[in-house]
Simulated assay, not measured.
Amino acid sequence: MQYRNLGKTGFSISEISLGTWQVGGKWGDSFSHDNADQILNAAVDSGVNFIDTADVYGDGESEKAVGRLVRSRTERIYVATKCGRRLQPHVNEAYQPKVLRNFVEDSLRNMGLETLDLIQLHCPPTEVYYRPAIFEEFDRLKDEGKIQNLGVSVEKIEEGLKAIEFPNVQSVQIIFNMFRQRPAELFFEQAKRREIGIIVRVPLASGLLTGKFDRNTNFSKDDHRNFNRQGDAFDKGETFSGVDYETGLAAVDELKAVFPGAQNVAPDALRWILTFDAVSCIIPGASKPEHLASNLQAMERPAPSPEQMAAVKKIYDERIKNPVHYLW
């Protein structure tokens, strides 16, 4: 495992880390603590030292599993969680300092920890990024020792650029993959200039970039890849990175020719992300231990050649860019 700095936090974190939405979120299965424990411990055994969760994953059960992991291991494991999505309705006016403070304290109780290494606002409405009082509350939480660092998880480039204007924002979690390339433009440049850590989520476009799906693949009714393709439950860009499913399948077929011999495109798709030095880590999810093993294969892949990088860009420009690039 290789490690990179998470911005100015002083944390040296695994390039390939672990996101736990699949462990406790809308992926078609109910929460299993036994399965979560297997995945989490296997990740740490493989050198992963950064775990991303959220209070809404499994209604707090994911946080409980992560806390149990941290308390049971001797390794230094950095814990990031998120707050805000529990607000109903999830609107700008619902974001209030006292409410967010309560969410932080709930997460500490869920995990059985005294402090959070990183707390992130969980994709709040754009208007929240224009309210300094929200960000100031996290300075007080840091002074009290309840958090170590503040980050944000964003949907849009605009939100990331606005967030990093606040001096206490240390990291930005953002969707970036072969089907969502816009962050590599202005945002990566500005984040590097400010020494902001970049946590890449949805790196496999909800599994589309594994190359294992086809037109006959069925997703259960409780799986967001079934019910959220048009953004009926939350931002459309969180599901298949906002790419039309049929379009994505066609693009993946072309990617398989760029990386010949790889029936599983996932390791090459993850390795492609790591060619961008602005990235601190990737947080692919895993709903089974074998998914984790697949993700970790990226460490064994060579960096894509200049010809492969150009081919990926060409596929993006011709198939994906027009309907996706300008929305997020």
Rank of each mutant, 00 (worst) to 15 (best):
R4H: 09
K8Q: 07
F11H: 04
I13P: 02
E15G: 06
S17C: 07
T20Y: 11
W21R: 02
G24S: 07
W27S: 02
N35H: 09
A36Q: 03
D37G: 05
D37F: 10
L40P: 00
V48M: 04
D52N: 10
A54M: 04
D55H: 11
D55G: 07
G58C: 10
D59C: 06
E61F: 13
S62F: 12
S62Y: 12
S62R: 11
S62N: 08
E63I: 07
K64P: 03
K64I: 12
V66L: 03
R68I: 13
L69A: 02
S72M: 06
E75A: 15
I77A: 07
I77E: 02
V79F: 07
A80E: 08
K82N: 07
C83W: 13
Q88R: 13
E93S: 14
E93V: 14
Y95I: 05
Q96E: 03
L100R: 04
F103M: 11
S107C: 13
R109K: 15
T115D: 01
I119Q: 01
Y129P: 01
I134M: 04
I134Q: 01
E137F: 14
I147C: 03
Q148D: 11
Q148L: 15
N149S: 08
N149Q: 07
G151I: 10
E158I: 15
L161G: 05
I164C: 05
I174K: 00
N177W: 12
N177S: 11
N177C: 12
M178Y: 06
M178K: 02
R182T: 15
E185K: 07
L186Q: 10
E189G: 04
A191F: 08
R194L: 15
I199W: 06
I199G: 05
R201C: 07
L204K: 03
L204W: 02
A205H: 05
A205Q: 04
L208E: 03
T210V: 09
K212D: 05
R215E: 09
T217R: 07
T217Q: 05
S220T: 00
S220P: 03
S220Q: 03
N226G: 01
N226W: 04
K236H: 09
K236P: 06
E238N: 10
V243F: 05
D244R: 06
D244S: 01
E246L: 14
G248K: 01
A250F: 10
V252C: 02
A257M: 14
V258G: 03
V258N: 02
P260H: 06
N264W: 09
V265Q: 04
V265I: 12
V265K: 00
A266E: 01
P267T: 08
P267C: 11
D268C: 14
A269P: 00
A269Y: 09
R271W: 14
R271K: 15
R271A: 15
W272L: 13
V279L: 02
I283P: 02
P289C: 08
E290P: 03
L292R: 02
S294K: 06
Q297M: 14
Q297D: 09
E300Q: 13
M309L: 14
M309C: 08
A310I: 10
V312T: 01
V312I: 11
E318K: 10
K321W: 08
P323G: 09
L327P: 01
W328E: 06
